[in-house]
Amino acid sequence: MNNKKRFFAVPYVVWMTAFIIIPLLIVVYYGLTNVDGKFTMENILAMFTPINMKALVYSLLLSFISTVICLLLAYPLAMILRNADLKSSSFIIFIFILPMWMNFLLRTISWQTLLENNGVLNTILSALHLPKQHIINTPYAIVLGMVYNFLPFMVLPIYNTLVKIDDNVINAARDLGANSYQTFSKITWPLSLPGVISGITMVFVPSLTTFVISDLLGGGKVHLIGNVIEQEFKFKYDWNMGSGLSLVLMVFVLISMAFVTKYDKDMEGTNVW
């Protein structure tokens, strides 16, 4: 039996080694060497130059805002879904996941068309004699893009933990005299925390590292840390610097992962994937 399990694991191990571990090692190698292949910390320390720091802080800020907005939108929705009957809740989830079957780039480009100065949104607004909104190529558009693209990653883990809460626990709290607020703060919220934490990570990490959303919706005016790294690779052809900066960014990713494992011991929230 054990041998059989191993047998089935082989393709997975090959895949992991070839496309995750080896590339990661290459990034570490490039990040810690200079053009001549000598060891250096320069690429890591480059993160602390004013320009890169500014981009990093700005990225942290924007992804923090997007995460908060996602949480505020997702939690009530997950509550509604939990209380809805099975048929309608699975339908709502289906609707929610549907756009994710479309390519991520395509969805973001369509936001461009929607938000443009003469785009769909403004055409509707001006037809209603409302003032035009200039959202495209501003940080607002980027936050909108992040929220739109990553919201399902917040809803699903929260929903997943919420449906697992036994109704009897909530009923017991009510029987013992807790009002709705107390029931929520003492029972529902703490029990849903693993889902919330993994939702936060799954929104925060991709938002922090994105360069496509800021490129497409920010018009190249908003310089996030993802764009800095992209430029190192694409325009400056400095793979060493790009890898070094990626390594620093990876620290933030690892911190978030540590958070998840601390709060989500049973991997309840991430189970959905």
Partner: peptide, 18 residues
């Protein structure tokens, strides 16, 4: 002053009076 920095998108934007 600029709306943004583009390369390929300029064509569509200018054609669309953006």
């Amino acid at each position: 002053l600029v709306q943004g920095y583009f390369v390929d998108q300029i064509r569509d934007k200018m054609i669309g009076n953006e």
